[in-house]
Amino acid sequence: MIKRVHLDHAHMQHLLKAMIRIRRFEAKCVELYQAQKILGFLHLYDGEEAVSVGVMEALTQDDAVIATYREHGQALARGVDPKCLMAEMMGKLNGCCRGRGGSMHFFDRARRFYGGNAIVGGGMPLALGVALADKMQGRSAITACFFGEGAVDEGEFHETLNLASLWRLPILFVCENNLYSMGMAVERAEADIDFVHKASGYRVAGEKVDGMDVVAVESAARNAIDRIRSENEPYFLECRTYRFRAHSMFDAQLYRSKDEVEVWRKKGPIVRFQTWLEANRLIKPEELATIEEEVDKEIAAAVAFAEAGPLEPVSELERFVTMEEVPS
């Protein structure tokens, strides 16, 4: 049901560009990782772009986001500056967190982006607090709480859904179900893999959406947010998606077949949307070329910004362990 997505020419290009930006940003990250300019873990969002892009389209700047550790796409789709993100990836002072968080811990106060969180499910209770504080302070904001299906294994998922429902908090739960928590297939981890059904156990209404279809995600998210506002209660979206690449750069992918990955790649969010646009003559080749060129420029600028960025002086290592004041 496509209800409130106005698929005009500009919006279609915008959605496609947002997904291509994430894909190419991460492709560059892989190069920089191989060149050892990015270290540690690199959890790629490759294949899942439609989820963040679709959901973020439905949010306003007043809304809040709780992200996961696979949050490059979530941050970019939220509008966090790719330059600050790339600098963060490279551990530079001009990164969004001064190079202290790296790939798994992007924060951006100005965009109400309350953190990538590298403890699976660890961000979910934060969503309760953000939504509660907004409500208690009279703001009508929504908190979008992203988590993978692996978080459903954790107690925090259940505690959080229960409290969100009990306290009628305006939270949009976005389950990015990519079918594997690291190497653990969802059906090997969960007795009931119907997550919408699980949510209903806490009286949280929800629906499944094709997470490889950006328009379907945006549409579902817009409907969900309308419903959160009108019913004054949380809502649950299960976005079925797939991670094309390894869990991290250390993953030999023994737990799934190459054929399976290939089947999903054919359903990829970018190839699918782009093919549809092209088949219906909704995008011209030169428009696509322009999008790709602009994205490449943005990313080149981000890399240049990151490369030129200074390192945080070691003398500041303990700064912000305790804060002098609460930032306003």
């Binding site: 809040a64 660890g122 934060l126 309760l128 607090g129 953000v130 925090e156």
Partner: peptide, 15 residues
């Protein structure tokens, strides 16, 4: 875990 985390989240947002 949930209510302590809710405390953390609300402290991030002005409470």
């Amino acid at each position: 875990s949930a209510f302590v985390g809710a405390g953390v989240g609300s402290a991030m947002v002005g409470m």
